[in-house]
Design a protein around this nucleic acid. Sequence first.
DNA 1: GATGAATGAGAATTCATTCAT
DNA 2: AATGAATGAATTCTCATTCAT
Lengths: 195, 195, 195, 195
Amino acid sequence: MAKPNVITKNDLLQSAKQCLVEGGIEKFTLRAVAEKSGVTQGTVYYHFRTKEQLILELVQEICEDSWNSLSQTDEGVLKEAIESAKSRCSYDSFYHKLFITLVSTGFTNEKIRHQLGEMIGRENDILTRQLEKLWSESPIKGVSVETWGIFFNALVDGIALQAILKKDFPIEKTYAELEHFVNGISSLQNKEESE
Amino acid sequence: MAKPNVITKNDLLQSAKQCLVEGGIEKFTLRAVAEKSGVTQGTVYYHFRTKEQLILELVQEICEDSWNSLSQTDEGVLKEAIESAKSRCSYDSFYHKLFITLVSTGFTNEKIRHQLGEMIGRENDILTRQLEKLWSESPIKGVSVETWGIFFNALVDGIALQAILKKDFPIEKTYAELEHFVNGISSLQNKEESE
Amino acid sequence: MAKPNVITKNDLLQSAKQCLVEGGIEKFTLRAVAEKSGVTQGTVYYHFRTKEQLILELVQEICEDSWNSLSQTDEGVLKEAIESAKSRCSYDSFYHKLFITLVSTGFTNEKIRHQLGEMIGRENDILTRQLEKLWSESPIKGVSVETWGIFFNALVDGIALQAILKKDFPIEKTYAELEHFVNGISSLQNKEESE
Amino acid sequence: MAKPNVITKNDLLQSAKQCLVEGGIEKFTLRAVAEKSGVTQGTVYYHFRTKEQLILELVQEICEDSWNSLSQTDEGVLKEAIESAKSRCSYDSFYHKLFITLVSTGFTNEKIRHQLGEMIGRENDILTRQLEKLWSESPIKGVSVETWGIFFNALVDGIALQAILKKDFPIEKTYAELEHFVNGISSLQNKEESE
DNA sequence: GATGAATGAGAATTCATTCAT
DNA sequence: AATGAATGAATTCTCATTCAT
């Protein structure tokens, strides 16, 4: 007994994510995490002193992931963001299931809720900044570019929610038209400008 | 004449909803439901044969509620729908917490997931039909009116999600600008028409 | 499953006492209590919601026992009290092991400590009242009858402590001489009176 | 020259004593001892091969302490012994808490029990020898000087027990009257002699 | 209809102990 | 001499569920 260093904290976190998505929080047990990682429960407890701590670190990782992927798209255009959103979105979407599961967990855990809120905020900000690069001013009067950031982020999450819930959700079509929507909105502004 | 202390199935469902929102599925136990209703666990079992059955009936009720409130707004314009969405949306929103909690529960329960999916579908349809009344054709080329229905529904849910997660989310402002957005989009169509 | 009424709370408490004495608090588990009573752990938890609660009720019972046995000895003389103390005192004394175990548990549990403190206080009082009946005044100047009560109670407990710790403790001899001590002290007073 | 951070066995024993008193045997874990000493569990295991071994050495230390303090008081009179007993006796008495905790642990560990029994025996003997010096014969017929040794030791422990359990125990008063008691008893003997 | 006692499986967590380094 | 990773068994406690009354 006591084989040192057979597993890293990160391995455990990855197993944990899978467990969360596969069974929801209801069935999310540290025993399941341990089994999926091939270690004993004790080992999981050695690395994360409580279940909550594990979930917290999991949330943190996701928030950092979101941050990294978004800030890399520095040069990126909205189109790319949409593409990425689409790729993460399907009836069996791992990412969004995880996200929604954590959101619902956050309702009864202020720390989680706060972190997810911050993450959403950062996402909104980045979208807004991208729109600012794209547009000289808001294409629709009364709607600030900041709010456009919120709108796009909300739209993407809302679509994902629908896609997870409906087996027959037209992902391709919806995302294709989302692009038309973005283009239409953007061109609208140019039109106004040229008027 | 009225028998006191008679607990109806509906009373239990209302308590159950509260329990779900207050503690999430994790802490959602039949004992908690029983206590909130002032009855014993046995009584809960008398009315719902299993825990799953209770949740299922709870989901059903919510779906029916959605249906009723939407079909009443038959005459209603989009504006009214937005107003109603806003009223259900805040950092402590009971309704959306319940919805998201059930969605995440649905990830591991196909019956729940299916029912919620159907509900979303009906909502999309109703929105689409309202937009059809409002618009002669889609205000943006390449975006079908059906997809507009999806977009609006997704937008409302996505905004709610953000509002629940962020204490400082600007609900008033966002909804006000959402109205400008709808108006802008609608007038856009008229403009195109007049061109 | 679910045979109603096969066991009473009191049965469980008796088993618990035995477990406590047999294994000390260290090995005092509710599983052991359940097994000794022939029920499942769940049953124990149904009757006492926590381990602490069980111990608390156990302490209470012991305190009540002490009260009952002492108040019955209404007419009783000191001699009787000594006899009873002796009978409870041996290398394997169930009673004193239990008592000392609970005392040490009380060091980290204020409720237990308080209850035991109250019990000791009542015992002291009763002893004092008995001595008052026996003596017109304290047989030794500077020692109040109240303090005599404390002394006798302390003596009995201290002797019990020694008897539990030493296999070869001379119980018979010590208690016989304790009686001589009491008589000697009492007669001392009469002597003084007659002087 | 002094090596910093070097933990000696004795340091660990002192931490262990504190842990025992602070949390009782229930919460007495090697991890707690390690943390209090600022080392890891492994280190504790390096010094004591098992938990039992640690406790055993702890008991031994206490017995040696008792021996040392008593044999120093070689010249000492009873008065001094009482003074020392009083100083170790209060509602938060470290010493007696530790002692009682170990006694109760001893109920399920013969080695501990034996050592404590031996310690008590030695204490009784020393007290008896002191009384022999003080008295030419027992002041009360039928009570041997040996038993007086037992009585005084029991009395001191019994009083300590009460003092630990009762927040409002009159320590000062009781010890003052204990001295009167000793003096009274001793003078009694002289009186008898002079008769 | 409703209750309360009981169950058993499984949850989180703790802990003495081991061992390679 | 000391550490830290790992273990596995045990512990407290919870919960859906059953069933006689």
